[in-house]
């Protein structure tokens, strides 16, 4: 469904992604693991075309994403949940959701405000509050809900557990499981191996922008040397 082929991305002169290739299949939750600065966020931003890869191809459902603008990528059905939450703090929860709304897609049950409030009951209680009145955890939930309003066919989650209280991380894991059950594939960028293992089917480990491991968590378990070398847990 999503295929990266020899992607190279630079920030100025710094080479961030180095010939990165991987695929993500229909209905799969894949976790992109690696330490800080390994290139996880850049991978996600490269897919969204928020940073432009210099070479390589990124194909989503047969569409070449290179050279598209971020909003065109989003309209193809890739939903992006950024690292630093980035909700619109001056807008109410309902208005935040409205910004994310896109037309329903063929063959998918469209998300509505009502169906999202079932998954995120906290947001319903505070639907007319402005974003800035929300706690960190609620803001993170709102970011996810806002992206789901765009009826994505693939969800990119960038470090959703960063800076969140452990108890909220547990809730988040439960939420992602629910989303997973709806059949939506997810690419989850994470540093927290415990969290990733709970929700993901497959792990991809990157280091200095290169892929170092691609396989099941069980295999990773059996191979502590990889884990210790690249994850520094």
């Amino acid at each position: 469904m999503l295929e990266l082929e020899s992607v190279n991305t630079y920030y100025g002169k710094a080479h961030i992604l180095n010939d990165l290739s991987f695929t993500l299949n229909e209905g799969e939750v894949v976790s992109l693991l690696g330490r800080n600065g390994a290139g996880k966020t850049t991978t996600v931003k490269s897919i969204m075309q928020l940073v432009k890869p210099a070479t390589g191809s990124i194909v989503f459902d047969g569409n070449h994403l290179n050279r598209l603008a971020p909003h065109q990528v989003a309209r193809l059905g890739i939903g992006y949940v950024p690292e630093e939450r980035r909700i619109f703090t001056d807008l109410t929860i309902l208005e935040n959701l409205e910004v994310g709304r896109q037309a329903p897609r063929d063959g998918l049950e469209p998300w509505t405000v009502e169906s999202l409030f079932k998954i995120f009951p906290n947001l319903e209680e505070r639907q007319n509050n402005r974003g800035k009145a929300l706690s960190g955890g609620e803001q993170q939930m709102l970011t996810i809900a806002r992206t789901l309003m765009g009826n994505p066919r693939l969800l990119l989650l960038d470090e959703p557990s960063e800076g969140i209280a452990p108890v909220i991380v547990e809730q988040m894991a439960a939420t992602i499981m629910q989303i997973k059950e709806s059949g939506l594939p997810v690419l989850l960028s994470e540093q927290n191996l415990h969290f990733a293992r709970l929700v993901a089917d497959r792990a991809i480990i990157i280091e200095s922008g290169e892929k170092k491991y691609d396989g099941s968590f069980a295999e990773l378990e059996a191979n502590p040397s990889i884990r210790d070398a690249y994850l520094s847990v």
Partner: peptide
């Protein structure tokens, strides 16, 4: 929304 964060609005389509 764009007043606050242009890039994010773009990334939402």
């Amino acid at each position: 929304a764009a007043t606050q964060d242009r890039e994010m609005v773009g990334a939402l389509g």
